[in-house]
């Protein structure tokens, strides 16, 4: 579980110095072009059968990272390796083959299924792409994946709008596993679902991971959920990874002030343990970034150094990396540790 720093098994996914900037400009060419640094040099590794959670708030670049890995966007620079092969500059055939190794489960099950196609038609596509023939063989496999995600195979005859949110998300998962990928990118897979359905879907994903040896890149803002499903946690802030550690280490002792703030702000479903807003202010606008730390305007620990130089990710204990100038001082003090464990009544 905590072997992510050691390189013994070949990682399923390796991202190195990945950069993607978007030009957000006015429509007139003489207007100054502003760049959104959506993903600004991130690196991580994901081992077979494990789950890496990308955590962060809107605009931190986690969804852009997902799209880059799925090759729905092209990176400006950096390298993405799937199963040891680079996908950033692949040949056309290689790309098709590689693409099959990674699939995605989308956030909104209402928007991610083509509304005018029957479930069967949607699920036949991955097999068509794979070159499965003839048709009855495809239909057989469609029934198989539907059963695998806990749905009645007859659902293939229905249209998406006839299904509930939970059923649709199961179809989304069925589509993702149909191509027998080794990695699935889950982009907030339950946040659009009803609360009473979420745990079903999480259980299904955990089941599939165990039975098929899948790796997950799990994108979420829900830290309780991340704590439950992930092996490694990477926290993103404005396009950078600011902290990365095995889940147990991270939740016991987060070291970046932003990670600590995130943990402290997420509302605990226990009225006897009230949380308080841990940080003030909002994400810095792209124009103000400058040279320093991106979190400095909200950071309770910011000093003049933080405005002058951007902290690099550095290893502080085994496999625990933090990008903070004051990482030595951020270990939890006694009273702050109330956030770590669930208080008894």
């Amino acid at each position: 579980m905590n072997s992510f720093a050691t390189a013994d098994p070949e990682p399923i996914l390796e991202v190195k110095d990945l950069v993607k900037h978007f030009a957000s400009s006015g429509s007139w060419s003489w207007q100054q072009r502003r760049k959104t640094r959506a993903v600004d040099g991130i690196s991580f590794k994901l081992l077979p059968g494990s789950t890496l959670a990308l955590v962060g708030e809107s605009g931190c670049g986690k969804s852009t990272t997902a799209k880059l890995i799925l090759q729905l966007l092209e990176p400006d620079s950096g390298d993405i390796r799937l199963c040891g092969e680079s996908v950033t500059k692949p040949k056309k055939n290689a790309l098709r083959r590689l693409r099959r190794n990674v699939q995605m489960v989308f956030q909104d099950p209402y928007a991610s299924l083509t509304p005018h196609l029957k479930i069967g038609a949607i699920l036949r596509e991955p097999f068509l792409v794979k070159g499965v023939r003839p048709r009855y063989e495809i239909n057989e496999r469609v029934r198989f994946v539907l059963t695998a995600v806990g749905l009645d195979p007859n659902i293939a005859q229905r249209f998406p709008h006839e299904l509930s949110g939970g059923q649709r998300q199961r179809v989304g998962i069925a589509r993702a596993i149909a191509g027998e990928p080794r990695l699935i990118v889950c982009d907030e897979p339950v946040s659009a679902l009803d609360v009473s359905i979420r745990s079903q879907i999480i259980n299904l994903l955990l089941d599939l991971q165990k039975s098929c040896g899948l790796s997950f890149l799990f994108i979420s803002h829900d830290l309780d959920l991340v704590a439950h499903v992930s092996d490694v946690v990477a926290v993103m802030y404005l396009g950078k990874i600011v902290e990365q550690a095995p889940a147990a280490t991270f939740f016991a002792q987060p070291r970046h002030p932003y990670s600590q703030a995130l943990l402290a702000s997420s509302p605990i479903p226990d009225p006897r343990r009230r949380t308080k807003p841990a940080i003030r202010g909002e994400i810095m606008a792209g124009t103000e970034l400058g040279a320093g730390c991106r979190f400095r305007n909200r950071c309770p620990l910011a000093v003049s150094l933080c405005a002058a130089a951007e902290p690099e990710l550095q290893t502080i204990t085994e496999s625990h990396e933090v990008a903070c100038h004051r990482a030595d001082e951020t270990a939890y003090t006694h009273e702050a540790s109330q956030f770590q464990t669930h208080a008894n009544k």
Binding site: L70, L72, R96, R99, R100, Q103, M104, F106, Q107, D108, A111, S112, L113, T114, P115, I122, E125, P126, V129, K130, G172, R175, A178, G179
Partner: peptide
Amino acid sequence: TADFVQAARSVGI
């Protein structure tokens, strides 16, 4: 740019 088109694209269509 709709989700369902992106989803179909990521399947490899």
